[in-house]
């Protein structure tokens, strides 16, 4: 047995080596960098330097607030929307199912830069189709890019557009794995379609929903592209700056690697903490 394990490890060795050098080491290294003052040459070990700054940095708390706000509003709305889409996709009444499945999944495949450009156009103040539509139903134009609240809404709309279909496909796969005869039994039990959804589909889909939530939480914690490209580097005035953007600004604009590492670790720790709470809340009770 031990012999066979040794052989297996020898086969795994090349992968483990690369994994250690390019994954494990950077993770450890960046953790150590977060304890160093990196604006001086040479870098110097100063445990409180970056972490101390983090605790009192208004820019950090602004980014944290924005990130959590997006998390709390956008993720549940998106999952609910994805659920509705999945139910529709799963309906036997639907024609051309493949087409819809493709259409829902397509946003994920579209290049981030291209989609951001299209969103900027669609939401532009004077020429955007969105404001034209608002006008046509008698609503006033919205200046999406220069006020904080509409800008945040825009980010959430964009992220939702991009990822709702993706989650819908995952939920659909989960739905299709529930055996048909369970629903037939419920139908014979005189249980309405709506109750079947709430008492059978939702509970049986719980693991898949949790999976989607965890993926979305991790994704939103790292949110970068949309506020960078659509609202131009977290504009207006840092109103849509996320932790991912702050990290980028510190690491790559100011070359303050120590502080950027501290931000990165905070993001990861938050994502893990929220996910654990999530898993604990939805654990299998018995």
């Amino acid at each position: 047995m031990r012999n066979r394990n040794a052989t297996a490890y020898r086969f795994l060795a090349p992968y483990l080596l690369i994994f250690s050098v390019f994954w494990v080491w950077p993770i450890i290294s960046s953790f150590m960098i977060s304890f160093q003052a990196t604006r001086t040459v040479p870098w110097r070990f100063a445990p409180g330097f970056n972490w101390g700054r983090l605790i009192g940095d208004p820019a950090f708390f602004n980014a944290l607030k924005n990130t959590l706000l997006i998390l709390v509003i956008q993720v549940p709305v998106m999952i609910a929307l994805a659920m509705v889409m999945a139910v529709l996709l799963n309906s036997p009444l639907l024609k051309a199912r493949g087409l819809y499945r493709f259409a829902f999944f397509a946003p994920v495949v579209v290049g981030e830069v291209a989609y951001s450009a299209v969103f900027r156009l669609m939401f532009s103040l004077d020429f955007g189709i969105v404001n034209k539509l608002l006008n046509s139903v008698g609503l006033p134009k919205v200046d999406w890019f220069s006020n904080v609240t509409p800008a945040m809404a825009l980010i959430m709309i964009a992220v939702t557009w991009r990822w709702a279909g993706y989650n819908a496909i995952i939920l659909l796969a989960g739905m299709q794995s529930i055996p048909e005869d369970v629903y037939e039994a419920a139908t014979l039990d005189r249980v309405s379609k709506l109750k079947q959804f709430f008492y059978i589909t939702l509970p049986l889909l719980k693991p898949v929903i949790v999976f989607c939530l965890v993926l979305s939480i991790i994704g939103t914690m790292q949110l970068f592209t949309e506020p960078f490209l659509i609202t131009e580097r977290g504009g207006p005035g840092g109103g849509t700056e996320t932790l991912g953007l702050l990290l980028y600004r510190q690491g790559f604009r100011s070359l303050n690697f120590g502080y950027a590492s501290a931000v990165a670790y905070t993001m990861a720790a938050l994502a893990i903490a929220i996910t654990l709470v999530q898993l604990w809340l939805t654990r299998e009770k018995q």
């Binding site: 055996p179 369970v182 008492y199």
Partner: peptide, 21 residues
């Protein structure tokens, strides 16, 4: 295939239809 409701106890499986109606 029995088509039992996998997430319910035996008691809930038996009473589900009656409870829902």
């Amino acid at each position: 295939s029995y088509a039992l409701y996998p997430h319910m106890s035996v008691e809930q499986n038996l009473s589900f239809g009656l409870r829902m109606t």
